[in-house]
C-alpha cells in the first residue's frame, strides 16, 4: 500500500476518481453508458471525446515544459490551423472531395508545425525567453487566422471533415482514437528512444547537457515543433466539432488548461523529469471538472469561481506539505513526505 501511495501518479489518480465519485453521488446517471445504434453514449464518453483537443495540446506542452520552457501560443495555433484547413475546403467548393480534404488537413498540420518551428527558432536559436517568444504568436496568431478567413467566420458543410470530431468507430468517438494514437506515438518516441531522457537532461541543466554532448538546441527546437504540430491537429478537431473556423474563439485559454493538466500530472514547471501518463490523467481531470460544471448546473456567471475553487482544492490535495499539515491537525502522521529517491520509469 505504501509503495502505491508513493507512486507519483497516486494523488493525481485519486483526485480524478474523487471527481467522478462526487458527480456520481450527486447524480448516479453520470456513470451510466447507453448503447444506441451500436454507439456508446454517456457523460464519461463525452469526456473521452471532448478531451481530445486538450489532450493533444497538453502532450506537446509536457515536452515543452520538460525543456524548462512554456508554449503560450497553442490556442492561437489552433485558430491558425483551423482557419487554413477550412479556408482551403471552402475555396475549393467541393467539400466532399477526399483529395481536397487531404490537402486541407495536411496544410492545417503544416501551419501548426510552421508555428512551432517559429517558436523553436526564437527560443533555441535566438535565445529569447520562452514566455516572451510564444507570447508573440499568442497575440499575432489570431490576427493571422483572421487574415486567412478574410475577417469572417469560415463555415463549411462537409460530412467527412465532420467525422474527425463527431464520428464514431466501433462504438467509440473517433476523436478518442486520435487521443490514444497521439499518446501512443509521443510515448513511443520519447520513451522507447532516448529522446525522453535527453529532453529531461536539457531541462534539468542545458549547459551541462551541451557539454555532455547533447544537441540541446535541436531538442528544444523539436519540442516546440511537436507542440505546434499537436496544437495544429487540435485546431482541426476543434473546427471539425463546430464546422467553423472562429479565429477569436478557437482554443481560447486552452494554453492555461494545458499547463494546468501538465502540472496536475506531476511534471514540474521547473523542467526536467516529466510524466506523460500524469498529463493524461491531468487532462481527464480537467475535462471531468468541466463536465461537472455543466452536469451540476453551475450558473455560467459563477463558473470561473467554481472552477478556481476546485483547482485550488485539487492542487492542495496533491501538495505533500499540505497533506502533512492536515495529517498533523488530525493527529495522524500516516502521510509522509513523498520524496522518492528512486525513479520509476513511465513506460506506456
Amino acid at each position: 500500500m505504501n509503495a502505491v501511495m508513493k507512486h507519483r501518479l497516486f494523488w493525481p489518480v485519486v483526485v480524478l476518481l474523487a471527481l467522478i465519485l462526487v458527480n456520481t453521488l450527486s447524480r448516479p446517471s453520470f456513470v451510466s453508458i447507453t448503447v444506441q445504434d451500436g454507439r456508446l453514449y454517456g457523460s464519461l464518453i463525452d469526456i473521452l471525446r471532448n478531451s481530445a483537443p486538450l489532450m493533444l495540446v497538453a502532450l506537446g506542452m509536457t515536452l515543452v515544459i520538460a525543456t524548462r520552457g512554456i508554449d503560450l501560443s497553442v490556442g492561437a495555433v489552433m485558430a491558425v490551423s483551423g482557419a487554413v484547413a477550412l479556408q482551403i475546403i471552402q475555396d475549393s467548393g467541393d467539400a466532399a472531395n477526399p483529395s481536397v480534404l487531404a490537402v486541407a488537413i495536411g496544410a492545417g498540420l503544416l501551419a501548426g508545425l510552421a508555428c512551432g518551428l517559429w517558436n523553436g527558432f526564437l527560443i533555441a536559436v535566438l535565445g529569447i525567453q520562452p514566455i516572451i517568444a510564444t507570447l508573440v504568436l499568442m497575440l499575432a496568431g489570431r490576427g493571422i487566422a483572421l487574415l486567412i478567413t478574410r475577417g469572417f467566420i469560415t463555415t463549411i458543410n462537409s460530412d467527412p471533415y465532420k467525422f474527425m470530431a463527431q464520428g464514431y468507430v466501433v462504438g467509440l468517438p473517433f476523436a478518442f482514437y486520435v487521443s490514444l494514437a497521439a499518446i501512443a506515438i509521443v510515448a513511443v518516441i520519447e520513451r522507447r528512444t532516448a529522446l525522453g531522457v535527453l529532453t529531461e537532461a536539457v531541462g534539468i541543466n542545458p549547459e551541462a547537457s551541451r557539454l555532455a554532448g547533447v544537441r540541446a538546441r535541436g531538442i528544444i527546437w523539436g519540442a516546440y515543433a511537436a507542440s505546434g504540430l499537436l496544437a495544429g491537429f487540435a485546431g482541426l478537431l476543434y473546427s471539425s466539432n463546430i464546422m467553423a473556423a472562429d479565429a477569436n474563439a478557437a482554443g481560447l485559454y486552452i494554453e492555461l488548461d494545458a499547463i494546468l493538466a501538465v502540472v496536475l500530472g506531476g511534471t514540474s514547471l521547473a523542467g526536467g523529469t516529466f510524466s506523460l501518463a500524469g498529463t493524461v490523467v491531468g487532462v481527464f481531470t480537467i475535462q471531468t471538472l468541466k463536465s461537472t460544471i455543466t452536469f451540476l448546473g453551475v450558473p455560467p456567471a459563477v463558473t470561473p469561481v467554481f472552477m478556481a475553487a476546485v483547482v485550488v482544492l485539487v492542487v492542495l490535495i496533491q501538495s505533500s506539505r499540505f497533506r502533512r499539515w492536515v495529517g498533523r491537525l488530525g493527529g495522524r502522521l500516516s502521510v509522509r513526505s513523498a520524496q522518492p529517491v528512486e525513479r520509476t520509469e513511465v513506460a506506456s
Binding site: E200, I204, N205, A208, L211, T273
Partner: peptide, 12 residues
C-alpha cells in the same frame, strides 16, 4: 553548474 544533472540518477 556544468557537470552533473542533479535530478537524474547516477546511472543516467
Amino acid at each position: 553548474a556544468e557537470g552533473i544533472l542533479g535530478d537524474l540518477t547516477v546511472a543516467e
